[in-house]
Amino acid sequence: MENNAKETVLSIRDLSITFKTGAGPVNAIRGVNIDLPRGTTLAVVGESGSGKSVTFKAAMGILASNSVVNSGSIVYNYRHNDGTPATVDILKMKTRDIRRHINGKRIAMIFQDPMTSLDPTMPIGKQIMEGMVWHYKTPKQQAWDKAVRLLTEVGIEEPEKRMRQYPHQLSGGMRQRVVIAIALACDPDVLICDEPTTALDVTIQAKILELIKRIQAERGISVIYITHDLGVVAKVADFVNVMYAGRIVEAGTIDEIFYDPRHPYTWGLLSAMPDLDTEDDRLYTIPGSPPNLLHPVPGDAFAPRNAYALNIDERLDPPLFRISETHYAASWLLDERAPKVEMPPELKARIERMKKEGI
């Protein structure tokens, strides 16, 4: 799943994470491999509970206390202030070192609900300045000036006035812009956006996506979107990883995933996207529900919901089959011995429409 044209800034290998619960251990992440090429946008998509957020909370060193990392590495390649290259495995770092050298400073995260990210008792300005003062010992006045510039950069008018206001005095869209300003305050080179527009209405959503895109182009940062919304993915991503039951089941460029999907789960996700031109009067939904990861999953986790499942799916988990240099899918349908199965005709027609419209 590597893209060799660019340096890989973040490389996750064989990541396996279990959560201890009262009902027993939950095998939430089951051998995840993800690469983020520098300067690109990667979207990680899948239903709730597929493991998207957990994977990147591990990269931020902010996993819940009942989590156990069973195996794997999260290798981060960056440059020191003097330009010399450095490489660390975040999973081997002490929590305090992650806080001081990685969190907010080099890898920043924008969470789903700005109200849970912002401190209701602290003025906006102070919250933006906090990271600069903590990580870089930036003098107060300098931090204030930079915070005002950041508020302007994220499209907030009257920034000086806003600096003194509290989160409850701002609208949802403005609060999300403030969260983005906080994330950018220490000039990170990786920005993780966890469902950054879910709580916002559609017009504000589009503005926030445009804002992140513009900032990425200006600063040359790498961006990861964690989302279940393929409409968002179509607007922002260079690469897509499709996640199901704690594993990556398909990975490729945006065009490969949207125009040439190979995994039945990806077919289901694309078929479930709202489409004005579809013949059906009802929106498609993938039948069944994801497996309970409290129990071991025999074979392919998607098999019980897969209309194209083969006998082998019940016994063996498929490996990632290589389709092209950048495109992989974990489906036994790609084995040369498997019967030839085409994607559903309705999806094929939809993809043809998408190609014509240039989506």
Results as ranks from 00 to 15, higher is better:
residue 17 I to N: 02
residue 218 E to G: 01
residue 15 L to K: 02
residue 2 E to W: 01
residue 3 N to I: 05
residue 84 T to S: 15
residue 261 P to K: 02
residue 332 W to S: 00
residue 67 S to G: 13
residue 151 L to C: 04
residue 235 K to W: 01
residue 199 A to C: 05
residue 335 D to S: 15
residue 317 D to V: 00
residue 277 D to T: 07
residue 133 V to T: 15
residue 274 P to W: 03
residue 241 N to G: 15
residue 300 D to W: 01
residue 101 H to L: 11
residue 86 A to P: 05
residue 37 P to D: 10
residue 70 N to Q: 15
residue 297 V to S: 10
residue 110 I to L: 09
residue 89 D to R: 03
residue 104 G to C: 07
residue 337 R to Q: 12
residue 351 I to K: 01
residue 168 H to F: 15
residue 101 H to W: 05
residue 353 R to Q: 11
residue 270 L to Q: 06
residue 277 D to V: 03
residue 182 I to L: 09
residue 100 R to I: 05
residue 352 E to R: 11
residue 78 Y to F: 14
residue 299 G to R: 12
residue 101 H to M: 09
residue 1 M to A: 13
residue 326 T to L: 06
residue 21 T to Q: 08
residue 337 R to K: 14
residue 236 V to A: 00
residue 49 G to W: 06
residue 359 I to C: 01
residue 211 L to P: 13
residue 289 S to Q: 13
residue 231 G to Y: 02
residue 100 R to N: 14
residue 252 G to Y: 03
residue 313 D to G: 06
residue 28 A to E: 12
residue 15 L to T: 05
residue 43 A to D: 03
residue 235 K to G: 01
residue 305 R to C: 03
residue 132 M to L: 15
residue 163 M to L: 15
residue 92 K to P: 03
residue 161 K to N: 11
residue 161 K to W: 09
residue 9 V to A: 02
residue 314 E to G: 14
residue 78 Y to E: 03
residue 158 E to M: 07
residue 252 G to W: 06
residue 315 R to W: 02
residue 51 G to E: 11
residue 109 M to D: 12
residue 93 M to H: 03
residue 340 K to C: 04
residue 164 R to P: 08
residue 246 G to R: 06
residue 80 H to R: 13
residue 8 T to F: 00
residue 325 E to V: 07
residue 220 G to H: 07
residue 177 R to P: 11
residue 107 I to W: 04
residue 165 Q to L: 14
residue 323 I to G: 02
residue 185 A to I: 12
residue 66 N to M: 04
residue 128 I to T: 10
residue 168 H to S: 08
residue 340 K to F: 04
residue 213 K to T: 15
residue 186 C to P: 13
residue 39 G to H: 02
residue 271 S to P: 08
residue 140 K to E: 14
residue 205 Q to G: 02
residue 62 I to N: 04
residue 15 L to C: 07
residue 46 G to P: 07
residue 331 S to C: 11
residue 149 R to W: 01
residue 149 R to M: 10
residue 78 Y to C: 02
residue 201 D to E: 06
residue 113 D to G: 03
residue 163 M to P: 15
residue 262 R to S: 11
residue 25 P to S: 07
residue 189 D to M: 04
residue 276 L to K: 07
residue 192 I to P: 05
residue 117 S to I: 14
residue 253 T to L: 05
residue 353 R to E: 08
residue 167 P to V: 14
residue 168 H to A: 06
residue 61 G to I: 09
residue 245 A to F: 03
residue 337 R to L: 05
residue 115 M to T: 13
residue 284 Y to A: 04
residue 294 L to H: 14
residue 347 L to D: 11
residue 52 K to I: 11
residue 280 D to T: 13
residue 311 N to Y: 00
residue 184 L to P: 13
